[in-house]
Design a binder for these strands. Structure first.
Lengths: 137, 137
DNA sequence: CCATAATGTAACCATTCTAGTTGCGATTGA
DNA sequence: TCAATCGCAACTAGAATGGTTACATTATGG
């Protein structure tokens, strides 16, 4: 299972928190909905916490809540929090003696950043509040 | 290195073919520019051949040429040829008893396809002919 | 006809990434 | 005190990728 479903799981977990905003949810509850292990959820939510998207409380009756209102958490914020790299990768090597190879890195870097600049606004359009609106009350 | 550089390597290889359009290039030559193994190149170009982007010739003086004019090969065609999945993955599991989990798959599928619909036109804008224009003669 | 130079492909290995799991210390509330 | 909970480290399993070797097949040129 090397498929990268971190973004999907993060949105799922945050949607649960947004669904009943304000109520604490334990990693065990969230893991139950996502059908995975609580530790996997805690690992992922640690990343989201560093980005300010969630806050956690230790101890009994502890758990997670959103770090700010659902309407102010876009899918792009989630994407940035869990995916460090972009969509594609540049190869680290290359033959510097070849004039084509020399130019490829710069060229592809430009392509990748133009792609990113199209994806970002699309993901910014949707917030967790929009997600909740699609969920049953 | 488990980084996914297939797209970058494919564009690099095709750019070499477009640079001196019509001349055959062996996998060894291409591998020399990309700084990898000829078998890696042949494996990748086999995929591109299935998509019609290159043609190969066996035997001595064999090698690869573009399957159609460089101006008619967009980066999107390359992307489709080498990347089967989309950018993100949907988790295969989920708790069907949870109303949030039940809706996530459909919701995320919509998000992913909207992202794809922004990326595709951006990649379609650039062809191999555009790449060659940026290369030294 | 034969040597040479190529592709196509299978097999295998090393590395890296992800998710899953166990265990445990620290913290909090009842 | 006790139970619930996060944080984190360590380990495992499985998959994907790229690199490498090997070999059958095919085409060219003398």
């Amino acid at each position: 299972m090397a498929a990268n479903s971190r973004f999907a799981v993060a949105v799922h977990a945050l949607s649960l928190l947004a669904w009943r905003e304000g109520e604490r949810r334990s990693s065990r509850e969230i893991a139950g909905s996502v059908a995975t292990n609580p530790v996997v959820i805690r690992r992922l939510l640690t990343q989201l916490q560093r980005a300010g998207l969630v806050r956690s409380a230790h101890g009994a009756k502890g758990g997670f809540v959103l770090g700010r209102p659902a309407a102010r958490i876009s899918l792009y914020a989630v994407y940035r929090a869990v995916e460090e790299g972009g969509f594609f990768a540049l190869p680290e090597k290359g033959n510097d003696a070849c004039p084509v190879s020399c130019r490829m890195k710069g060229f592809l870097g430009g392509v990748f950043s133009r792609v990113e600049s199209k994806v970002a606004p699309e993901l910014r359009k949707t917030t967790l509040a929009d997600v909740v609106r699609r969920l049953p009350a």
